[in-house]
Design a protein around this nucleic acid. Sequence first.
DNA 1: CCTATAGCCTGACGGC
DNA 2: TGCCGTCAGGCTATAG
Length: 262
Amino acid sequence: MPELPDVERRRRYLCATSLHKKIIRVELLAPDMLKGMGKGRFSQLLKGRVLDNVKRRAKYLIIRLDSPYSLILHLGMTGDLQYYKGKKIPPPFTRLLVHFQGNSHLAFQNARKLGKIFLTKVPYELPCIKQLGPEPLEDNFTFDVFRERIKNHKRAVKPLLLEQSFIAGIGNLYADEVLFQAGIRPTRRSNGLSQVELKRIFKNIKWVLDEANRVNAEVERLKNKFFIPNRGPDEVCFRCKTPLEHLRIGGRTTCYCARCQK
DNA sequence: CCTATAGCCTGACGGC
DNA sequence: TGCCGTCAGGCTATAG
């Protein structure tokens, strides 16, 4: 689930449910997911704190506390957040459980434990965040920036879009979405793309992510304009009805329409 | 610089 | 029903 728009949805969810609530206790059920400090210190530093605001950097959630510390969550492949009230059984695969004052709770679920948890005073100094490329929806990510950055590469364009140090936040499904909307095959070399094609890719990075954010990453609501909800196995292209192509690029499942994408 | 591969972990699903 | 293989929207380390 978690690519940029999915993480953005969780950010909004956290803002709507958990802001300004006081943590009375935390349970770290999967200690290995916590990086950079021990469980005891982690629990101690969170106890009594309040969530001040939530930001997103690429696929990372950065939760500022009313202390010098920020709680950083990375959802991995299977991460989710669930806020609930009352004394209930935590949702399945809860790896971190935050208990707030007033009998409400926030569960960080993560079936495969591929997500990560950090607690630090300097979130933007974490290596995994520091090395991230530009935030695609920021105004300072312009076509000129994109063109200058892509000049340094000769790779197939899809793995390049997936490279977080190149552009931050795009994952496997959205990379395919951008290339479908741009009409570019995922196997095309980045150095073989024309100026017009580069422009189409750039424009669609913005468009695809904006649209997805607009519907809160519920792509089913974009079934008549988005590729993602129409890309199942044995499906045909929702625009031209040509059977879709499936292949593996850089170890990731890739899907495209050979007629719409050149 | 690039590509492919394995590894981290575990669940869901399809075939036999 | 049960076992087995395969796959999964992320990311890193490593080898060639």
